[in-house]
C-alpha cells in the first residue's frame, strides 16, 4: 500500500493525508497521479498556454527593457476621440503607461464629444513645446483635423514637434502638412484603416528604440499577421489583403528617427 494516498485541501494545501482517492470505485483505488507530478503538470500547462498566447499575439517580449536615452528631453501628448467606452478604455490602458515610462512628461486626453479638450490640448502642447526640445504627438482618433489646433502656435515652438502618429482613416495625406508645420516625421494610414492593430506594434517597437522605418515595417507586418489570423478564423469573411490595402501605414519625413534622438 502506498504510504501517501492523497493531498487534501481539508487540512490545508498541500498537507498530505492518508485518505484514498475519493471518486474511486471498487478495486480501482490506485492514485491517479503522484502529487509532485500533478503539481508539475498543473503549473506547467498554464506556462505553456501563456507561451501560446504570446505567440498568437505575434510580438516579441520586452522583458523589463530600459527606456532609450534622452527621456528628460522629450514629451508626448496623446488624444483619443469620442468613441464607444470600450475603445476609450482600451486605448487609455495601453497608451498611458508607455508614455509615462518613456517620456519625461506626457498628457493624455479623452474627448467626450467632438471638439472637446481643444483648449486643454493646445495649452498642454504649448507647455510641452516650451519645456522640451522634442515633442511627439499620438492622434488616436478617427479621421481628424487636429492639425488645425496646432497651426496657431508660434513657428519656433512648432518646430519642436518631432513625430506625429495619426490613426485616422484617410489621414495619410496630412503628412506633408505636418512636415510643413514643423514636424520631423509623420505616420498615417491611407484608407479606412484598422489602425489599432498597427498601433500596438508601432508604439511598442518605437518606444523600445527602433527607428521609425523599422517600427513601421514591424507594425505593418504585425498588422498583416493579425488580418491573416482574422481571415482564417472568420473563414474568409475578412479579406486580409483588402484590409491591408486600406490600412498599410506609411511614413514621411525623417524615417531614421529614433526615440532617443532628441534633436528637433
Amino acid at each position: 500500500m502506498p504510504l501517501l494516498w492523497n493531498i487534501s485541501l481539508r487540512k490545508g494545501f498541500p498537507f498530505v493525508t492518508d485518505q484514498p482517492p475519493q471518486d474511486t470505485i471498487g478495486n480501482h483505488t490506485r492514485r491517479p497521479m503522484r502529487p509532485g507530478k500533478a503539481l508539475a503538470v498543473s503549473l506547467l500547462l498554464p506556462c505553456l498556454l501563456y507561451g501560446s498566447v504570446v505567440l498568437l499575439a505575434g510580438d516579441r517580449l520586452f522583458v523589463f527593457s530600459k527606456t532609450p536615452p534622452g527621456r528628460e528631453s522629450r514629451a508626448a501628448l496623446a488624444i483619443r476621440d469620442d468613441v464607444i467606452p470600450f475603445f476609450k478604455w482600451g486605448t487609455l490602458l495601453f497608451t498611458r503607461q508607455y508614455l509615462r515610462k518613456h517620456y519625461a512628461e506626457s498628457w493624455y486626453f479623452t474627448q467626450a464629444s467632438k471638439g472637446d479638450c481643444r483648449e486643454e490640448f493646445a495649452s498642454a502642447l504649448k507647455q510641452a513645446l516650451e519645456n522640451y526640445p522634442a515633442v511627439d504627438l499620438y492622434l488616436l482618433a478617427h479621421t481628424n483635423h487636429y492639425i488645425r489646433w496646432v497651426k496657431d502656435l508660434p513657428e519656433e515652438l512648432r518646430s519642436r514637434i518631432r513625430f506625429v502618429y495619426n490613426t485616422g482613416c484617410h489621414n495619410e495625406p496630412q503628412g506633408k502638412d505636418w512636415l510643413a508645420l514643423g514636424a520631423d516625421a509623420y505616420i498615417g494610414h491611407p484608407g479606412v484603416s484598422e489602425s489599432p492593430f498597427f498601433y500596438f506594434f508601432l508604439l511598442r517597437h518605437w518606444l523600445h528604440g527602433a527607428t521609425l522605418e523599422e517600427a513601421l515595417a514591424l507594425g505593418n507586418d504585425g498588422m498583416h499577421l493579425k488580418f491573416r489570423q482574422l481571415e482564417w478564423t472568420t473563414f474568409g469573411r475578412f479579406q486580409a489583403e483588402a484590409l491591408m490595402k486600406e490600412s498599410r501605414a506609411s511614413v514621411v519625413g525623417d524615417v531614421g528617427l529614433r526615440l532617443g534622438d532628441t534633436a528637433p
Binding site: Q22, D23, H28
Partner: peptide
C-alpha cells in the same frame, strides 16, 4: 491550477483529463 491538481491527484484519469480540458484549459 488547484482544480487541475486536485483532479489529477484525486480522480481517475478518464474523469480528470476531460474535466481539465473542458474547464481548466
Amino acid at each position: 491550477c488547484a482544480a487541475s491538481y486536485l483532479l489529477l491527484t484525486r480522480s481517475r484519469r478518464f474523469v480528470a483529463i476531460p474535466l481539465i480540458f473542458l474547464c481548466c484549459v
